[in-house]
Design a binder for these strands. Structure first.
Lengths: 207, 207
DNA sequence: CGGCTACTATGACCGCTGTCATAGTCGACC
DNA sequence: GGTCGACTATGACAGCGGTCATAGTAGCCG
């Protein structure tokens, strides 16, 4: 959530993501997006001839890229990088936001996934690629910490799933408890995966 | 889900939950709910004088009770109850549904949480109590399996968070992979919490 | 200047939403 | 039968949704 002085088009995509993650897709109107972005209403059909569907999809894609970018920053912020540290940083972004701005917003990708009836199937695909865009850097970071590549992708899925669910519950309860809880509970499991050679395979094979 | 021959009121609540978990709250119209429930449109204002908000809240509450009820059934279905077995059963309900009916629906509580702009704050509270209603039996089941009571609630939160997130990702990707992945990855952690006396406290204190 | 392109500005259209108002039906009870 | 209550049936209303159509402006190029 950074620079506000970009082109109107970019501002509208950003505003769309902001509104979607607060209200959901259907409840967010295009006029509202334009107003929130201080952009002229006439620009909507000019920049997004594909209509609301295109705007929503771009907002979701933007959110995916944003999440991926954040992973790199979180890594840079850890002086001794561990999986649990990365996960804690990812969750901390949400606890911080909730402490500062209240529990008004969630993840735009989650909102789009839940609310993809209005926008056609393309929005669901956009959400899927957004999740993949996000999961990539997380898995990469895990391998960089010594997690076997086979498990890295699984653990990245676990981390993102858990985080999304915790965001959901935290928003519902208006309490960061779910976020802090999953960080504490999942941390040991994540760190245990580093440096284990065939131990990881053993666990996986135990099934 | 189950019995279709109940009173019209109950059918409407059930249909509302069904439609909400497919389309989201805002995208689901009241006329649509009545039609889906084969209920007369005039009954809407009669049974739900509180309007859409009341209907949505009751649907969410119903979903919470339903999830709680399912936990008991899952427990009964396990011949040797373990935390990982319970979690796997919870996830299997979703993989089964997705295999049978496609990835069209998610969790109604999640949908209501994301999309609570139209309905006022009461819907958010309904979602919070639904999560609590769900978490209760899960935590209780865990303590019954030997998990220390202090950790049981945390692990229940972890299980539900992870499951909700995995449902989300599975729906987006149209693939049950996230669900199966989190079951495999989380299983050992959950089972490790059974029967540990002060080991659990040690982990928690290590922080 | 003319012409072109990028962008902006409105206004209108149609469909759908939740909600209210009114009238109608049905069945039980005295 | 008469009356009351629960329930059903429509119709209308006001508002907002996305989208199309049309006209307008600004700036650059030749």
């Amino acid at each position: 959530m950074t620079q506000a002085r970009r082109g109107p088009r970019e501002r509208m995509v950003f505003s769309a993501a902001q509104l979607i993650r607060r209200q959901g897709v259907t409840a967010t109107g295009m006029r509202e997006v334009a107003a929130h972005a201080d952009a002229p209403r006439g620009s909507l059909q000019h920049y997004f001839p594909g209509g609301k569907e295109q705007l929503v999809n771009e907002a979701v894609a933007w959110a995916g890229r944003y999440a991926a970018r954040r992973v790199a920053r979180f890594l840079a912020g850890l002086d001794r990088p561990t999986p649990s540290g990365l996960f804690a940083a990812m969750a901390a972004q949400w606890t911080d936001e909730y402490a500062a701005d209240g529990f008004t917003a969630g993840c735009p990708v989650a909102a789009a996934t839940v609310d993809c009836a209005t926008s056609g199937d393309s929005t669901r695909e956009a959400a899927a690629t957004a999740f993949a865009t996000w999961r990539g850097p997380v898995a990469e970071a895990l391998t960089g910490m010594g997690v076997p590549p086979v498990r890295a992708d699984s653990l990245a899925t676990l981390m993102i799933s858990t985080l999304e669910g915790a965001i959901l519950m935290a928003r519902a309860e208006r309490d960061v408890r779910p976020l802090t809880t999953v960080v504490e509970e999942l941390g040991p499991l994540l760190d245990a995966a580093t440096g284990e050679g065939r131990a990881g395979e053993a666990i996986a094979a135990a099934d």
